[in-house]
Design a binder for these strands. Sequence first.
DNA 1: GTCTATATCAGGATAGAC
DNA 2: GTCTATCCTGATATAGAC
Lengths: 202, 202
Amino acid sequence: MSTEERLGTQERLVRSTQELLWERGYVGTSPKAILERAGVGQGSMYHHFSGKSALALAALRRTAQTMQQTAEECLGGPGTAYDRVAAYLTRERTVLRGCPIGRMTQDRDVVQNPELRTPLDQMFDWLRGRIADVLAEGQRRGELAAALDPVATAATVAAVVQGGYVLARAADDPAPFDAAVQGVLALLAAQVTSVGATGDRD
Amino acid sequence: MSTEERLGTQERLVRSTQELLWERGYVGTSPKAILERAGVGQGSMYHHFSGKSALALAALRRTAQTMQQTAEECLGGPGTAYDRVAAYLTRERTVLRGCPIGRMTQDRDVVQNPELRTPLDQMFDWLRGRIADVLAEGQRRGELAAALDPVATAATVAAVVQGGYVLARAADDPAPFDAAVQGVLALLAAQVTSVGATGDRD
DNA sequence: GTCTATATCAGGATAGAC
DNA sequence: GTCTATCCTGATATAGAC
């Protein structure tokens, strides 16, 4: 008995929806496709969820939550601020699949629906804030140049990842993603202070 | 008589398709919507184009061409390499609408169709190459640090724009786009050599 | 070249039996 | 809770008249 089969109906529906939204987007995902992948009947689906958008909302919340945890594992890890940002940028990714959250950003029905947009908004807002915190902490420790703007730089880092996916998918090749990441890491490395600097040590 | 009305049927169809692809993506755009916006009948449309994908191909080629021209106006302009990249990054944009080419990257049917993907691929390939050329030229002139990797940095610049759109649409606010651009410009500014440097002058 | 049928299938959901 | 039947609309295209 597979893991999938032992899960509850509701859980299987949410997971199917997560997968399909990632692969096909919101417009491209039909209730029929969801229930077929989940292996449940139509009546079953409409019993647990009011319809497509309710299913999508549950799926997006789940995906955003998972992505946040994954990012936190890198950004909350050990090392300097540069190390932690580098860990986030270079963590293993299935580049050509793109970002399951960033992708939804291109879906009209999602962006125009405040409820559906909220998980995306919160996720990216948290991400930029978290990266900015890491960078600001690096500055306080004297690791990074004081002139660096943590908030703007955090947006840049997050944008490089999302834009890297776009470039890679256009090329059908992960190379542009990797190049973009290496490019921003090199620029960031130039902001790393060479000496232990002015940090207070006991 | 409006400009639209005096155009030929074929031309009106292509323009309608360009608009709709930008707004709704490929899956979200129906032949019916195209012909209604163009103000032509169904028979007319299938006379000039074999179907939806042929129409999309014509539209994407046109859009990519226009975008390339727009980018060239900035990147081929006057000033230092930094100035020209900055001109590209900060040129006026309707940020919340996103990039009409980058958007298609999230459309399964487009990316999986080699013919439809080609215009996207060529456009971004050209863009990264053009930015890399500008940066390399800046290095030869002694404007930019020799250690900078023009190819990787070019990918970063292109990614920041595409990713900036994603962040802005998630937030329903252009601010993250602007922040990402300012962030990468500040990082790039740190690569500008302070002196006229080693350039040969007559 | 353009128009109006016509055809087929999928999307998205409701109804009511079990 | 789950199933099957049914409904209505739209997507995508073909046919053949004008």
